[in-house]
Design a protein around this nucleic acid. Sequence first.
DNA 1: TTAATAAAGGATAAAAATGTCCTTTATTAA
DNA 2: TTAATAAAGGACATTTTTATCCTTTATTAA
Lengths: 152, 152
Amino acid sequence: MISKACQYGIRATIFIVSRHHDGVKLNISEIAREVDAPEAFMAKILQVLSKHRIITSLKGPYGGFFIEDFQLEQPVIKIVNAIDGMSVFEECGLGLKQCSASHPCPMHDQYKIARDALQNAFLHTSLRKLAQEVNEGDSFIKNLALKKSESC
Amino acid sequence: MISKACQYGIRATIFIVSRHHDGVKLNISEIAREVDAPEAFMAKILQVLSKHRIITSLKGPYGGFFIEDFQLEQPVIKIVNAIDGMSVFEECGLGLKQCSASHPCPMHDQYKIARDALQNAFLHTSLRKLAQEVNEGDSFIKNLALKKSESC
DNA sequence: TTAATAAAGGATAAAAATGTCCTTTATTAA
DNA sequence: TTAATAAAGGACATTTTTATCCTTTATTAA
Ligand code: FES
Ligand code: FES
């Protein structure tokens, strides 16, 4: 569906946005820790997002990752596009090389509905909105930490 | 989304169902050719479908793969479950270890809608129905063969 | 200018998914 | 019973995805 790299990227970006105030910058290890991602892998992903100007980075002491005002209203789909590309939203569910209404696979109609719903979910949700939800405590980007006694 | 193995499996099964008459049996190479899948890989996939009793196989001369009457009304989701498992329909879209309404990720509500739509698509579609569509020429399990002059 | 800090980037490793090859087993017809 | 046929199954190879390590570059404060 959505690659792990992309999921880390989305969670990381939401975290960065949720800390968007008074020039705060976050470094890789903080971000990786917050979203339960391996640090070096997280670094690669943030690199891509930075190169796509979805987030902004600054090297050196007092540097790190942050988000600028003009980046706040971007839809999450930008992250998906930067990391995974748009193919999830375009490809045939049964693996035909082309998805088209003129040469459809037998699941085309039903599949397209779900695929479009997914695309709309990512298209019509802004980074700002997601971060706001997290800041208000309504949702989370970090796994629930279970005590040893609790099972999954 | 759906693994390649699973897509081959679904297309292959639809093909087998579409040829469900008078004890016709299909062998691996016919099936692989029809669904544009590598033969040896197709063999592995048919093996698991057979073991899950989604299709039936018979060894030896005049053997091959076919479908029995009692197998016709199975929903496609059985194939997905046999090959990929049910995790696509259960996991968090942003990669949290648990998807739950009590500790939701910030995309939970929107994502769940799309994910459930996908599950319903596979759950409420029977093999028989898909094969019928193909037999009536309304849809296809094989890629459109392009002439050399035509581009993608 | 220098030392320290943090991201960028290159190279490599590990794991998972996809794909291939070859031997074994079951079934059939002759 | 034997030879032929076709799936089952084991082992291995390739590709893609995920993850790690180390060096280089940019920036800052002292
Ligand atoms: S052709 Fe298969 S989903 Fe459109
Ligand atoms: S918690 Fe993320 S989709 Fe349910």
